[in-house]
Amino acid sequence: MNNIGKNSFDIGYLDTLAAGDSSLHHLDPRAKLITTCAFIITVVSFDKYALAVLIPFFIYPVALISIGGLPAEYLLKKAFLVCPFAVLVGIFNPLVDREIIFHIGAIGIPGGWVSFLSILLRFVLTVTAALILVSLTGFNRVCEALLQLGVPKAFVVQLLFFYRYIFVLTDEAERMVRARSLRAFNASAMGLRNFISLAGHLLLRTLDRAERIYRAMCCRGFDGHIRIIRSSKIRCQEVVFASAWLFVFVLLRFFNVSLKIGDVIMGLFQ
């Protein structure tokens, strides 16, 4: 399977996870979307040397992964696979900021390393939170939530169309790339000239497809408005879910759990 195939497989897999049957899957998508955003904002609101205080936040992804029955290894692997930019920018921290900020025994720990680790920790937390949202909810239902939360319909509709045709178009692109690579014996990546003609053809086909879809829509009475029936209500579960987590986030934000526990432990040893 080449790159393209793998990527669309990934999307399909997350959507399969979203078809799961846990209590979390059945929550209204709005509750999950809002909680996820609150989580991310809380995590990134810490200062750059925050390390220990961030750790208790793992309770959120861990709890959701466990209760939702999601494959933890897969999600973590996905999160780690995509962090080159964060590492690239973060890696300069240890080089620039060499000030020792605390000691463990005789070893001085420079601030740069602390902030670098902090960046990585934030990265894992925020990225897994987003992945969990999709795998518990499914993209279409996230869009539903967006619509209900007041995002303009023109935008959400095209988001749905876009998502629908990702699968069709990546498939088409993959077939074209495969057809090319089967005839190009030595070159693994294609030259610019090849790419342009490939992309050009794909674009032409895409435009034709858009026309055919429009035709199919007209045949079924399309008048410029997309109508979708949805019956979803905010029930008790949603309120409990969102408010409980918000409470936890606030608590963890302003109360350094790690430090308190550490103090107790250290106290025991002294």
Partner: peptide
């Protein structure tokens, strides 16, 4: 006139099967 096109991928453009089948009746 109900028209079934050659490529179902062009005809099924909504997020779920339900939405797709409901598309026409809702427009009516």
């Amino acid at each position: 006139v109900g028209m079934v096109f050659q490529n179902p991928d062009d005809q099924l453009f909504m997020p779920t099967v339900f939405d797709d089948v409901a598309f026409g009746p809702l427009n009516l």
